[in-house]
């Protein structure tokens, strides 16, 4: 097994919802992410996938717990950590007034890349993500699929060691999803560690080395898709996940009955 790249230690996250009620989005979550693997976070809407990925992207702090990287808390040197990660958010937050090329150029400058490095990376990413016909176009006119490709290109601009992809293929046509899968597989070949949050089970099955089932803010199972299929005696990850949801609902129901008693 590869060495641990990032260790998530007992992370909890609570926030106040619009009704001023305290909601626990993550409950004492611990997880090791290994160097060079693709790990998928799977869960229904509201399970805590995006909360966990945004904590790892250093967008939000946890309420308690820690994230260990290079043997120390990321919060002790957040800037060095941020230089090593690339975060591709669910919402396409791109600079609409700049062209694709300009967006990538500036993205390189934020990470201190030289002009030569920026030019080389821009060419490579535009080529690899098939963005050449839009390089001079404003990011605003791109279709959903191209916006997502562009967001991935921007995420990879500074050659990060750890990439967080939050629902990268949500709402995209099947053939565009497949093209993006190839891009994600290529990241693994380059030795980049990838955290993928998705609710497409076929995507997780094809792409991930390990999948992590997250439900109501807790991690229940972490294993390879193959092992999970064997364990649950199912032929595809979708059936495994449905079985897992059934089991966890029963488990929760049982717990509430015990409390009532």
């Amino acid at each position: 097994m590869s060495k641990s790249f990032i260790s998530i230690k007992n992370i909890s996250k609570s926030y106040q919802n619009s009704k001023k009620e305290l909601k626990k989005a993550l409950k004492d979550v611990s997880l090791d992410i290994f160097e060079g693997e693709i790990i998928a976070l799977l869960g229904v809407n509201g399970a805590g996938k995006t909360t966990l990925s945004s904590i790892l992207a250093s967008l939000h702090p946890p309420t308690s717990g820690d994230v260990i990287w290079n043997g120390k808390s990321i919060y002790k040197d957040i800037i060095s950590y941020r230089k090593e990660i690339g975060f591709c958010p669910q919402k396409p937050n791109l600079d609409k007034l700049l062209s694709i090329e300009e967006n990538l150029y500036f993205s390189g400058t934020y990470y201190g890349l030289s002009k030569k490095e920026i030019e080389a990376r821009t060419e490579l990413l535009i080529e690899n993500l098939s963005l050449s016909s839009y390089r001079k176009s404003s990011a605003e006119i791109l279709s959903g699929g191209y916006k997502q490709r562009f967001l991935i290109a921007r995420t990879l601009m500074h050659n990060p060691k750890f990439v967080i992809l939050d629902e990268p293929t949500v709402g995209l046509d099947a053939h565009i999803r497949r093209q993006l899968w190839d891009v994600i597989k290529e990241l693994k070949k380059q030795g980049i560690t990838v955290l993928l949050t998705t609710h497409y089970l076929d995507e997780a099955e094809v792409l991930s080395d390990r999948v992590c089932f997250i439900h109501e803010g807790k991690i229940y199972t972490i294993d390879s898709p193959e092992n999970l299929k064997k364990k649950y005696q199912k032929s595809c990850l979708e059936d495994v996940f449905l079985q897992f949801l059934d089991d966890s609902q029963k488990d929760l129901f049982q717990k509430s009955e015990n409390v009532d008693e």
């Binding site: 941020r82 958010p89 919402k91």
Partner: peptide, 12 residues
């Protein structure tokens, strides 16, 4: 759009 959240993950 939360372009600001991109800035908040930059190394600063």
């Amino acid at each position: 759009d939360r372009l600001i959240s991109y800035n908040l993950t930059l190394p600063m």
